[in-house]
Design a protein around this nucleic acid. Structure first.
Length: 727
RNA sequence: GCCACCGUAGCUCAGUUGGCAGAGCAGCGCAUUCGUAAUGCGCAGGUCGUCAGUUCAAGUCUGACCGGUGGCUCCA
């Protein structure tokens, strides 16, 4: 007979076999209606399971989770995923089930299905789901011992489930299933008591995915949806999605002439139009001033570097697939490189080889000693030797090797350290075509990069200062909601360079400084760079979305690979430690994010056009120019609206162009030696003399005031863990 | 790169079963000269992403390619 302890401390015994639902019913009928799941020992569990199964404690600590608990939302959504899968199975033949977990904002289910599902099919799938919800059939859990479970799954003819149960779940002695009507799924649960609890749901999108996330595996169709306890919550969520669309930087960037992308230049190659370039230049100037104060030194480096340098750093071999191919100094370089690859992949026929030799000779190669009759390996050795004497350049994918060469350009003493080299360095990466996205994912971008070279003793302090810099920079643009992600190695992986000892030291140092900093941080294994751990700034924008922006990375490995040294106070050589850091990350990405954060309504100090001067009629032109020159002299970016239109139209245009201030001038203003100031946010401020207006605007600009930020407080009502609920 | 969807004027979009390519905004011209979110009239603007194919006839149907969007995979 289970005894239950509720959160309010009440202790009560219940008949054997009682469930959380029974407990709820014993309190009130209404509570039983609203109970979605329960929490026992911190675990979220089915409300319809006998309590003895869940805990063998004398007093079972039980929390009922109702429609008011965010934690129950994940349960609801996962059950909704089952309902969706059931609907899809009713409507399509031969549906293979994969996984169907919850996500931060909803759920998805992956299907192996020949017939393509498109958004046009959503209404009938939703209608079928509606019918299932209306039937309000219960979710029934049952457990089978491993052998029986395997047999049971075999009989369901669900190949992916069969595979998963044999590989992914090979260690599980018993497996749980959930049945809802004719639909049965291998599932860890928990689920809601019955489908009738789903009051609001919607299918969102369809996309491709891979079985177990591996691109080599079977391609699946993924159906995304979301569900809520209440139609109001669903509407709030959909409004949020609309708001995000309204702020899309690709649309706003086009609309406000900030940047453009055209296939004539190339995909992923961003053109900064004057207005966007102004925002970027202001940010760059701002950070340059700050770096000067913090003892950084400016440097410049070219856009290409020898492949060998990137072989030393490890970037070239590690990221070969996502770089633009090397530029060859010798005309035959590309040909030789191609030939070498062919040989390593099994070689080509004699004729091709003869063609290659002829072509290479034509291009001026002396291949008289090419070992025609030798093995592929020997031929590769020859070609490699040839290549070794040729120049090959890479469009630089990273700035660090260049800065490292600067460090090496002179002998360094411990007295010189730390050396802090800063550059807005433009780098090129051949991102996969499917990854490109407006300004936030491009193939050529500029990092506000710097590399700090310091002694082992200085690492902590330098790292701390760097965190402080990023904090300061984010604050200055009004981004004060962020966390830091401590990105660590993936245990047991061989994709990293450097010794165990260096990694352990680097990770421990990062963790120590972060703990001492008091900044909120989370850890993420497997997210480190290949040469060292990182502290990534995850910044929340005005509508609650997270962006990975600035980064600080600790690196013991590149100094080793490039044999960096400084002479210590003991007159012997020591190895410095490097810190890589970029507060904005990439200018493209950062400005893209800012556009969405401000919905293109930049604060005065960042606005591409700060003041627009609107004459009441065409006769005011000379006075408009007079006012303009006064604003320009005070450093403001202004234009005059020269349309032959009435002032209402000019104001409307300026408002739509999101200009922070308008100076409306007519005969009255001219007579009184001033202007009528209009604020984008507060509207007409009335007459002001020009000096007062300048003082007011100068103050707002120089303190980098952010007067308006349209925040929507919808923080997702995020339910459940982001872990897969499926096995 | 993979899967699904999309590509018509500078921008946002309409275009019936294949039958002469449309609107609004922006632009230009003329008139208007106005006090806080659209003055009126007119004009111009397109090889319908590209290339092939089917057809008497293709924006519309088919294929390939290019580009974009949503995801997947990737992100130094």
């Amino acid at each position: 007979m289970p005894t239950v302890q509720l959160p309010d401390g009440a202790v009560k015994a219940y008949p054997a076999g009682s469930t959380a639902l029974d407990v709820a019913a014993s309190i009130s009928e209404r509570l039983a209606q609203q109970t979605i799941a329960a929490r026992v020992n911190g675990q979220i569990v089915d409300a319809m399971r006998p309590l003895e199964e869940l805990s063998d404690a004398d007093q079972i600590p039980l929390t009922l989770l109702t429609t008011r608990d965010a934690a129950a939302l994940g349960v609801l959504r996962h059950s909704c995923a089952h309902v969706m899968a059931r609907a899809v199975m009713r409507l399509y033949e031969g549906v293979g089930l994969a996984f169907g977990p919850t996500t931060g904002n909803g759920f998805y289910y992956d299907f192996d299905l020949d017939a393509p599902i498109s958004e046009e099919d959503f209404p009938r799938i939703e209608a079928e789901m509606e019918a299932i919800v209306k039937d309000a059939e219960p979710f029934e859990r049952f457990v089978l011992p491993r052998e029986e479970a395997v047999q049971f799954v075999d009989d369901l003819h669900q190949e992916l489930k069969t595979e998963h149960i044999r590989t992914g779940l090979a260690e599980h002695p018993a497996l749980s299933f959930y049945r809802q009507g004719e639909f049965v799924d291998l599932c860890r649960g928990p689920h809601i008591p019955d489908a009738g609890k789903i009051k609001a749901f919607k299918l969102l999108s369809v996309a491709g995915s891979y079985w177990k996330g591996d691109a080599n595996n079977k391609h699946l169709q993924r159906l995304y949806g979301t569900a809520f306890f209440d139609k109001k919550d669903l509407k709030a969520y959909l409004d949020q999605v609309e708001e995000a669309k309204r702020r899309d930087h690709r649309m706003l960037g086009k609309q406000h002439g900030l940047f453009t992308l055209t296939n004539d230049v190339g995909s992923g190659l961003c053109l900064w139009l004057p207005k966007g370039a102004t925002v970027r230049a202001l940010l760059e100037d701002f950070i340059k001033q700050e770096l000067l104060k913090r003892g950084y030194q400016p440097v410049y480096s070219p856009h290409v570097g020898r492949v060998e340098m990137y072989e030393t750093s490890g970037h070239f071999p590690y990221y070969r697939d996502s770089q633009f191919p090397p530029l060859f100094g010798h005309p035959a370089g590309q040909l030789v490189d191609y030939w070498k690859t062919q040989l390593s992949e099994g070689g080509l026929d004699e004729k091709s080889e003869a063609d290659f030799l002829a072509a290479a000779t034509d291009m001026g190669c002396d291949f008289s000693r090419y070992p025609k009759s030798a093995s592929s390996d020997e031929k590769i050795v020859f070609l490699k030797a040839w290549e070794k004497h040729q120049e090959r350049y890479l469009l630089k994918p990273m700035n660090c090797p260049h800065h490292i060469q600067m460090y090496k350009a002179q002998q360094r003493s411990y007295r010189d350290l730390p050396v802090r080299l800063a550059e807005f360095g433009t780098v090129y990466r051949h991102e996969q075509s499917g990854e490109l996205n407006g300004m936030t994912r491009v193939r050529g971008f500029t990092q506000d990069d710097a590399h700090l070279f310091c002694t082992a003793d200085q690492v902590e302090l330098e790292f701390k200062d760097t965190l402080d810099l990023v904090k300061f920079v984010l604050q200055s643009v009004g981004l004060d909601d962020y966390r830091i992600q401590l990105s660590l190695r993936e245990p047991g992986s061989d994709k990293y360079v450097g010794s165990e000892e260096h990694w352990a030291k680097a990770e421990a140092t990062l963790r120590k400084v972060l703990e001492e900093s008091g900044l909120p941080f989370t850890t993420a294994e497997g997210e480190a760079a290949f040469y060292g751990p990182k502290a990534d700034f995850m910044v929340r924008d005005a509508i609650g979305r997270e962006w990975q922006l600035g980064t600080v990375q600790l690196d013991y490995n590149l100094p080793e690979r490039f044999q960096l040294e400084y002479i210590g106070d003991d007159n012997t050589a020591h190895r410095p430690v490097m810190i890589h850091r970029a507060p904005f990350g990439s200018m493209e990405r950062f400005v893209g994010m800012l556009i969405e954060h401000f919905a293109a309504a930049f604060p005065l100090w960042l606005a591409p056009e700060q003041v627009r001067i609107l004459g009441l009629n065409d006769d005011m032109q000379p006075y408009c120019e007079e006012i303009q020159s006064q604003f320009r002299a005070a450093g403001f970016r202004t234009t005059i609206d020269r349309q032959s239109a009435n002032v209402k139209k000019k104001i409307r245009d300026a408002q739509l162009d999101l200009i922070p201030y308008m100076a409306v001038v007519g005969p009255k203003d001219q007579g009184a030696g001033g202007l009528s100031l209009r604020d984008r946010i507060d509207g007409d401020l009335g007459f002001m003399n020009t000096a007062d207006a300048l003082t007011k605007l100068t103050q707002e600009r120089d303190t980098r005031q952010i007067r308006q930020l349209v925040k929507t407080e919808f923080q997702g009502f995020q339910g459940g863990d982001e872990e897969a609920n499926e096995y």
